Computed example of a mutant assay.
Amino acid sequence: MAHTEATHLPVTASRVSRLPQSLMAMMLGLFIVGFVGFSHIDVVHNAAHDVRHSNAFPCH
């Protein structure tokens, strides 16, 4: 039987660095939904619409 030993690496992400990452992810999501999803620019809206359909995501 072989003896194996697990190595534990220190976690470098702290709560301070997770907060800005979470906020940026939420802002990006709101931008995508708010600008692209409800855009009155036909090219932008139709591109988002086609992507939703190609991913089998119901949009209407």
Rank of each mutant, 00 (worst) to 15 (best):
M1A: 11
T4L: 10
T4R: 15
E5Q: 15
A6V: 13
A6E: 07
T7K: 14
L9W: 07
P10Q: 11
T12F: 11
T12C: 09
A13E: 12
S14Q: 05
R15C: 05
V16M: 11
V16W: 12
S17T: 13
R18H: 13
L19C: 00
L19G: 01
L19Y: 00
P20W: 01
Q21A: 10
Q21C: 09
Q21Y: 05
S22F: 10
L23Q: 02
A25K: 12
M26G: 10
M27C: 09
L28A: 12
L28Q: 04
G29A: 08
L30S: 05
L30N: 09
L30G: 14
F31C: 08
I32C: 03
I32S: 12
V33F: 03
V33I: 06
G34A: 02
F35S: 08
F35V: 15
F35H: 08
F35C: 09
V36I: 15
V36F: 15
V36C: 14
G37P: 02
F38E: 04
F38Y: 14
H40L: 10
I41D: 12
D42S: 08
D42N: 14
V44F: 07
H45S: 02
H45D: 01
H45M: 01
H45F: 11
N46E: 15
A48P: 04
A48W: 11
H49S: 13
D50P: 00
D50K: 06
D50F: 08
V51I: 10
V51W: 09
R52Y: 14
R52I: 05
H53G: 03
S54G: 03
A56F: 07
A56M: 04
A56G: 04
P58W: 05
P58H: 05
P58I: 05
C59W: 10
H60D: 14
